[in-house]
Design a binder for these strands. Structure first.
Lengths: 254, 254
DNA sequence: TCATGTGAATCGATTCACAGCT
DNA sequence: AGCTGTGAATCGATTCACATGA
């Protein structure tokens, strides 16, 4: 990721590994569910199962936060909810702006789990002047011209980009210039940002392509496992399309 | 391997690291852009910059696919587009079903970059009977009852879950039972699936929480860096809310 | 001469396995 | 007796640095 990995004084005692940080929200979600069912304590084994990881990893992850468990017993659910929330910075609330109120932007604005956990949609911004004032998810859309003042006035530090690819870098530059230091990018573009600005991307198309890779590999293995039977290789999977080589590259390798 | 491929030492397909697979779509996107501008060749340095990675990593990644470059020159753009497309399984088309046509599901159905690269929305499925027949993105929504027959009839192997969290596992189970072996999950739930089924998740809330973690850390460091100046620590960032400890856990550690 | 391709070194994350505490 | 917390071992991914070949 384009995380500004520059001059960090290193050896910060708050040296929580990135992989661990990425799992904390998962633990938090599982713990919140337990909390709602008034479960008082949970073992690493149970919680790990609920979060979909293995227990050794979970214990190691928690060990970076401190010793919050009780040997022989497990973890106190409420206490852990609080500690993880605090570690993630969810005990304060984070105003967020969404830029690009098309289908996706509107869906994000309507997404409930948003506001629930420390995040608040401070503004919706779109370049289309005919959208200005129109409410989406109960929030009036504002024009891009207002971007800088909105961010300044609301002390926004997290921005969500849901524009078309072509506009993303430009929007990103304006967000950064206006003081945004964390960006969640839904546009299929590589954003370049100065050091100190974090970017995370969510890319449907990339996810599908990764799935397709594995899917293809499964199909190949299945065919290979079919062994002696040469024809009738397809059980159910692909039905359309001819062979995988309908089309040959124009240029051959050197 | 079913591919009637020409040369190629083969047996390599097995060894592509997951981290490399996850970057191939990124390279492909950058290469496609170059291809559209009729750029004939590109160096690892240039392509890496376009994809937002460093060149050593890119070369290593490509080395898993084979030796597709020319020393002293670089990579042939068209040829590489083809090789990566084939490696990712994008030379065939993949029918996809989207289950859960709410705001998000509809946005996904409308997402263009979908169809462009080897994926085709074969069906939209929703549990709400009043939606049945209503077209979204030009495709009529079908009722969940039809799920199994849709998947079977269209040879679908990739499913997208965009339902509320509560319905996700149930939908997942039905998809898997019907023959789906790859799932892209947008619901904030840990799905459990049998071996052989791939799940990837996209979770807005998790991404925001990860950003909040880093954002909080930046704010802390900034305050620390402010050093001697004790008050007036905030430059512009947070403006609302008091300190991070407004609220204390009900339960103390053991 | 130049950029690829790749062993070797490094770094980070996961897993193992058990000591230490309740 | 049982579960956490953590060193040590392992595994995978990244980076380095240079030999290789166009």
């Amino acid at each position: 990721m384009a995380t500004g990995r520059t001059h960090r004084p290193a050896t910060r005692s708050r040296g929580i590994p990135e992989a661990t940080v990425a799992r904390l929200p998962l633990y938090l979600r599982a713990l919140t569910a337990l909390s709602e069912r008034s479960v008082p304590t949970v073992s690493s084994e149970e919680l790990a199962a609920a979060a979909g990881v293995n227990s050794a990893k979970l214990r190691k992850d928690f060990s970076y936060l401190g010793s919050y468990g009780t040997r022989g017993v497990g973890y106190d659910v409420e206490y852990l909810v609080y500690q993880i929330s605090r570690e993630l910075g969810l005990t304060q609330d984070w105003p967020v702006v969404i830029v690009g109120i098309g289908n996706l932007g509107a869906a994000l604005a309507n997404y409930g789990g948003f506001a629930s956990r420390g995040f608040r949609v401070a503004a919706l911004i779109d370049a289309d002047p005919t959208m200005a004032g129109k409410p989406v998810a109960g929030i009036p859309v504002q024009h891009t011209d207002e971007l800088e003042s909105i961010i300044e006035d609301n002390g926004v530090s997290i921005g969500v980009i849901a524009t078309p690819a072509g506009a993303a870098q430009q929007v990103c530059d304006r967000l950064v210039a206006a003081g945004i230091t964390s960006i969640l990018n839904f546009a299929p573009t590589v954003l370049s940002v100065p050091d100190g600005v974090d970017v995370r991307k969510v890319d449907l198309s990339i996810e599908l392509q990764i799935l397709a890779f594995h899917e293809q590999r499964k199909a190949g293995e299945e065919a290979a496992a079919e062994g002696a039977v040469p024809a009738a290789a397809a059980s159910r999977k692909q039905s359309s399309h001819e062979g995988p080589d309908g089309d040959v590259p124009a240029v051959m390798p050197a």
